[in-house]
Each structure stands twice: as C-alpha cells, then as structure tokens.
Design a binder for these strands. Structure first.
Length: 302
DNA sequence: TTCCAGGGGTAGA
DNA sequence: TCTACCCATGGA
C-alpha cells in the first residue's frame, strides 16, 4: 500500500472544516468525518482508470507559504499523471476551491439585523466528486428523514459500490453502470429505495448508456440559471426542492429549497411559530438576491 | 394503528 | 399555475 501526499492550493480566505462540515453530505457514505483529526475521508473510484483509492483531506499548515488542502491518497499502485489530475479536480470540486464568495461576504458584513453563522472563508457546502453522485444523494433526501437518507445511501454503497483493496467496509459510491446493471427491482427490494427506485435507475441508465452527459448538460457556467432549472426538472424525481438543492450544488444560490426544515425554521424564527405561506417564507430571504440559499442555510436558529 | 418525513409525478381544472 | 391524489419505506 502506498500513501501519496498532494497539496492543493486554496483561495483566501478559506476554512477547510467549514467546507467539509457545513453540509450534511459529510455524514453520507462513502464520506466520513474524523472530528479528532479534522479529516474528511472518502473512498473514490477514479473514472479515468477504474482504480479505487482512499482520499484523506485536511487543512494544510504552511509555514509562511500559501495555504493549501493536504490530500493523502491511499493506493495499491502508483498514480498515473491522469489519475493525480483527476483527484485534484475532485478535491477542488468537493470543497469548491474555484468559487468566489466575496460578494456574499460583503453582503454578510453589511446585513444589519441578520445573524448568519458564516466565518471568514465559510459559505462552502460540500459536494461529491461528480454531479451524478450529488443527484443520487439529493433524490435520497426527498420525503424521508435524515436517518433514512443515511440508510439508503449506506445500502446503495454496500451492495453496489466497489471495495477498496478488497476491504468490504470501504466501498466507493456505485457507478452509474453498477446501478443500471442492478436493475429497478434490486433497487426496490434490496436497497429499499421505494418509489425512488425507478427514478434512480432511469437516471443511472441514461448516464451509463451515454444518453445523458450530466457534466455537459448542467455544469456549464455560461448557462442562465433559469435554463439550468428547466434541465434539472426534466430529470424524473427532481421537483422544486431537489432542483433548488442541485442549483446550490452547482453554485447557484438564488432559489430556496423549500422543505419541512425550512418551513419549520422560518415559522419559528419569523412567524412566532405560526404557519406562513410559501410566498411569505420566500419573502424573508428575497433581499439576499442571488445568495438567498446561503442566507437561509447559515441563518442562526434564533 | 396512524401519521409523516429535508417531495414529486400525474391528472384535471 | 394550482390542487387533489397517489406513491414506498420506516420511525415515532
């Protein structure tokens, strides 16, 4: 077994722990968060080669040099340059090293009467290495408790994910091809994805067969958000909540994901525990414009 | 037993 | 665009 160390440069300010932990994704396998070591780990199957590696990310502690994310790669064989490049891209995507939050920070500094829990360098919400994985995670958060979401993702990974170095307990998130090959009945009866089974199987099949290129269709920074929203809603199983969540994943924060958590928070904090209409709830965060998802996300409970 | 969860599709208006 | 109604599963 080899351990290869990489250092990925980060923008300033940057808060690694906030990036890893502000979003619930870090609690979904194959992510694990080690609080004592402040380390985010993930078993990862590299798309370029099919090799499965383990990644361990933590904050670099430079002596006078530029800050970085320290990446340890556990691998059975040395990495090719292509594999190393893929890992660096995955790290940059996961903790959003290429996203500019300066306007959001300025708004936070000027926002009187708001108590947003954002530290300098915060605001980054963890993503998966690929959009496909983010979409499956998101579909597993609809109409279910958070404990249920964790169970679904655990079973999906345990049954269909590829193990790292023969270790059953360390499996990568399943590929579209593995989910497609399993078929909707396995998803329904063994992984117990319920009514999500058909949606997830359809999406995985479309990606595996090359009928849908998620990166090409949805990760185009020049595409207007309204068009992105339309494309996301064409995915079966993606409704208003999931689409807004995925727009957040894509770095577009102008739509609120209205779910029971948001309803509960807004009712308690702004309406004295009384019910409010969706329009009234949206109006609370409307002043934040294209940053309203983050304003809600980091809004202090009371 | 019943309700409902970090909702969404479909049909019908 | 809005509203009923149905959809699987599991915890409370």
């Amino acid at each position: 077994m080899l351990t290869i160390s990489l250092a990925e440069p980060v923008p300033t300010p940057f808060d690694f722990e906030a990036a890893a932990r502000s979003h619930g994704w870090s609690a979904l396998v194959p992510f694990t968060w080690d609080a004592a070591a402040a380390t985010l780990s993930r078993v990862q199957r590299l798309q370029s080669s099919g090799r499965v590696v383990r990644l361990h990310l933590r904050e670099g502690h430079p002596n006078g040099s530029a800050p970085f994310v320290a990446v340890e790669v556990e691998t059975v064989e040395p990495l090719t340059p292509g594999e190393e490049a893929e890992i660096r891209r995955a790290v940059r995507r996961m903790v959003r090293l290429d996203e500019d939050f300066s306007e959001f920070y300025e708004l936070c500094a000027q926002a009187e009467g708001w108590t947003l829990r954002v530290q300098p360098g915060g605001g980054r919400l963890l993503r998966c290495p690929t959009l496909f994985e983010d979409i499956i995670y998101t579909l597993c958060t609809t109409n279910i408790t958070w404990a249920g979401t964790k169970r679904l993702v655990e079973r999906l990974t345990a049954l269909l994910g590829e193990p790292f170095s023969g270790r059953d307990e360390w499996r990568a998130f399943p590929t579209p091809a593995a989910i497609a090959a399993a078929g909707p009945e396995v998803l329904r009866q063994e992984i117990r994805l319920g009514y999500r089974s058909g949606y997830i199987w359809e999406l995985a099949s479309a990606v595996a067969e090359g009928r849908l290129d998620l990166h090409e269709a949805l990760e185009d920074p020049t595409l207007p958000t309204a068009d992105l929203m339309r494309r996301l809603r064409q995915i079966k199983g993606v409704g208003p909540y999931a689409a807004a969540t995925l727009l957040m994943i894509l770095g577009r924060y102008e739509h609120l994901a209205v779910d029971t958590e948001l309803v509960s928070h807004v009712s308690k904090k702004y309406f004295g525990g009384q019910p409010a209409s969706e329009a009234e709830m949206r109006a609370v965060y409307a002043p934040w414009g294209r940053w309203q998802y983050l304003a809600y996300w980091f809004d202090a409970p009371d």
